[in-house]
Each structure stands twice: as C-alpha cells, then as structure tokens.
C-alpha cells in the first residue's frame, strides 16, 4: 500500500544487542531508548501526536505488563496512545495509519521484550492452537526445525548454507555446531536477548524539519498465513511476498533495493525469506546481524525497521526493505520499503 501522505522514520534507538538485562525492570529498560529518540529530534512527549507500543504479557508472566512501561513515556498531560500485543513493527504500522489519517504529524513507537524472564521456546508453545497443538508443548525451536527439514528436503538449502548464514550473523564458538533440534544447530538459533527499541515517525515537512535525511516509508503492508503448519507449504512464505508486493518492493520504476533487514530468528528462515521475497544477490541482507544476532522478542521486528532506516539515513542506501514476523514459522509477515531522498 503506498501512501497519500509521506511518512518517514526520523529517529531510532535500541538497547545494546546481545544483552540480558537481568536487574532492570521493563520501564528501566525502555526509558533510555525513549529519551534517545526524543532527544535526537528535540521533541518532548507532549509535542508528539500519537504513541503506540508493542509487547506481550506472556513474556513477562504478568497481565497488563505494558501499563508499567508507560511510566517511561511521561504520559502527562494525557496522550493519544495505543498498544498492540505483538511485535512493535505492528505498533509502527498502527502509528503509520494514524499519521495517514492526518490526526497526528508525529508518532513515538516503542517495543520491548524480556524473554530472559522465562523459557522462551516453551512460552511460545502457548501461542499455538490450544486444542490440537498446545497440549503437545511443541517448542519454537522444534517447529523451526520442522521447517528447516522441509527446506532441506526440497533442496532449497543445505546444512552448509545454514551454517554460513549463522556465522555471518554472529561469531559463534564451537557450541554453534552442537545440535539444537536437528537439523538446526545452536548457531542456527537466536541467543536469549532482552531489549527495547524506539522509533519516531513524522509526516511530510515535519519529518524534514526533525532530521536531515528522513527514511521515507514508501509502503508498508502485512499479511497472514493459516495457523496450522500442516496446511502450509513450509518452504515458502507467500504472505511475506504478498506484503512486499503491496508495500511496493517490486515497483519496476523504483531504485533497486540495496539492503534488507529480515526478521528471521533462525538461519533457515533467513534463507527462506531471501527466496520468498525474491531478494537478489545485490541486496545486502541483515547488515545489523539480524534476529540471529539479537532477538529481544516483541522488539525484534521493530528493530528491523529501525535498522533499515539507519542504512537509508546514515548508510548511504537509497532503498531498503524491512521485514517483521509473528507467530509460529513465519505465520504473519510485515514488510516496509524505505527510501531516502535522492542525494
């Protein structure tokens, strides 16, 4: 979907990748990134038109956990605010829609996850069909491994490519080769990471005023697969491709994509997404290290948008793609296409 109003990422901050923030509460983790994006633009909360966040109670083990993080925003006087119970990339989508309506010119988007509080692969079993799947407690690594096996069987990839993808994302020790759930090895799976991220969006001239080189969101869209793995083709992600198409990723008149940040917590999913999204050899995938390097669940997708925007704003990229996912084996997929003004 291309927009009738130009909206851009004008600031982005994230906590240091690869950290487990043991002694911090959610708000203590979120506060610094909020201050950083506001500080970068000189805005204060009362001058931001809309605020939207993404997080999940099941990571924290507490109901209404997002209400405590709101303490970091400074919601006084009262703010126009919303929250999605999923990755912050969808919070950004909601904020983008709000800006499109013209009801706001700026939006603060943030997300956080503290998966170190629980056993993440086990926690994620609770997002499966509660009648047929959840009673078997199939953990997220096992489901990704079933998908990886399907890719290997189909000849789409091989274990060498998976290992090379894992190595590119992060320097692994000898334990990287140890089996996780085969065919996945530990290096194919994300480390436990806590973290938070924040993005400031602005429309039109406001965006130009707030930063030197806005990363314009040329399109953003998200699509859904069926839930059950057994009815899907696990070697493909048609919903990701459809979202990319709707976001204008394949616009023949546009400049070529230079960078793609893919929300692929497993090496096999990065391979799958490159193929499903038809990313050519010329596209630099996950220069940030991607979700394989740091996976602060619920912030990971928003970080992809932030990182892709950084490549446009500071890395000289003309055009970049960002992808976020939610649900088992890439059930939901969001794609944003970001562009800088011609320099």
């Amino acid at each position: 979907m291309s927009a009738a109003r130009d909206i851009a990422v004008v600031a982005y901050a994230r906590t240091a990748p690869g950290t487990v923030t043991g002694d911090l509460s959610e708000v203590e983790m979120v506060l610094p990134v909020l201050r950083e994006v506001l500080g970068a633009t000189g805005l204060t909360t009362d001058r931001v038109g809309f605020v939207c966040s993404g997080s999940c109670d099941y990571l924290a083990g507490r109901a209404f956990s997002f209400t405590m993080a709101l303490d970091g925003v400074g919601a006084w006087p009262p703010i126009a605010e919303s929250h999605v119970e999923t990755d912050g990339a969808w919070a950004l989508y909601e904020a983008w829609v709000k800006l499109l309506t013209g009801a706001a010119d700026t939006a603060l988007v943030y997300a956080w996850g503290k998966p170190s509080a629980g056993d993440l692969p086990e926690v994620l079993t609770r997002q499966l069909d509660p009648y047929y799947l959840a009673p078997l407690w199939p953990d997220s690594v096992s489901l990704a491994a079933l998908q990886a096996r399907a890719l290997l069987d189909a000849g789409v990839t091989d274990e060498r490519e998976l290992a090379a993808t894992a190595r590119r994302a992060r320097v692994g020790g000898p334990e990287a080769a140890e089996p996780a759930v085969l065919p996945l090895r530990r290096g194919d799976c994300p480390p436990v990471t806590d973290g938070a991220a924040a993005v400031l969006l602005a429309a039109g001239d406001t965006a130009r005023m707030l930063c030197e080189r806005p990363a314009w969101i040329r399109g953003i869209d998200h699509r859904t697969e069926p839930h059950a793995l057994g009815v899907r083709d696990l070697t493909d992600a048609p919903s990701a491709r459809l979202a990319a198409e709707r976001a204008g990723a394949y616009d023949p008149a546009a400049a070529p994509l230079e960078v793609a940040e893919l929300h692929a917590p497993f090496s096999s999913q990065e391979v799958l997404l490159r193929r499903a999204l038809r990313l050519g050899e010329g596209v630099c995938v996950n220069p940030s290290g991607g979700a394989l390097a740091a996976d602060p669940v619920m912030a990971t997708g928003l970080i992809r948008i932030g990182e892709a925007a950084e490549r446009v704003r500071h890395g000289g990229a003309r055009r970049a793609l960002a992808h976020a996912t939610s649900g088992p084996c890439l059930q939901q997929n969001l794609v944003a296409v970001l562009e800088g003004d011609p320099s």
């Binding site: 999605v84 859904t224 839930h227």
Partner: peptide, 19 residues
C-alpha cells in the same frame, strides 16, 4: 494467530490490539 483461519484473515492483514 490461532483465530486467523476462523476470521477469514488468511492472506489478509490481521492486527491485534490490547489496551
């Protein structure tokens, strides 16, 4: 995620809000 099929959301955008 589990309700996507029942809600006819396959192939469509599906957004979850919690306030």
């Amino acid at each position: 995620l589990y309700l996507a099929d029942a809600l006819g959301a396959v192939g469509k955008p599906l957004l979850r809000v919690h306030t």
